[in-house]
Simulated scan of single mutants.
Amino acid sequence: MPTSSLSSLIGPVLAPTMPEVRAICVSSINGKASLNGRSHGLGSPLDFELLNSLRQWSDCVLVGRKTVVSENYFGVRTNVGDKETRLLRGQSPVPPICVVTRSLDIDPNSQFFTDTSTPPLILVPENTSVTEHGRLLQAAGASIHEFSASALDKLHSLGFRRILVEGGPQLIGALLSQGSVDKLHVTVAPWIVWSDEASLLQGIEVTQKLELEHHAADEDGCVFLRYRVRK
Rank of each mutant, 00 (worst) to 15 (best):
E49K: 01
L50D: 00
N52Y: 07
W57G: 08
W57R: 00
S58M: 03
V61Q: 04
V61N: 07
V63I: 14
V63F: 07
R65K: 08
R65M: 05
K66N: 07
N72S: 09
Y73T: 02
G75W: 04
V76K: 08
V76I: 11
T78Q: 06
T78F: 01
N79V: 03
N79Y: 11
V80K: 01
G81I: 05
G81E: 00
D82W: 08
K83V: 15
K83H: 14
K83Q: 14
K83S: 14
K83W: 03
E84R: 13
E84D: 05
T85D: 06
R86C: 09
L88S: 05
R89L: 07
R89H: 02
G90S: 13
G90F: 12
P93A: 04
P93E: 03
V94C: 09
V94L: 03
P95I: 04
P96V: 01
P96F: 05
I97F: 08
V100R: 08
V100G: 12
T101W: 09
R102D: 12
R102K: 11
R102C: 02
D107V: 07
P108E: 10
N109K: 12
S110K: 12
Q111N: 04
F112M: 08
T114C: 03
D115R: 11
D115M: 09
S117N: 12
P120R: 04
L121Y: 15
I122C: 15
I122K: 01
L123Q: 09
P125V: 14
E126P: 00
E126L: 07
E126R: 13
N127C: 12
S129G: 10
V130S: 07
G134A: 13
Q138P: 06
Q138C: 00
Q138H: 06
A139I: 02
S143Y: 08
H145G: 00
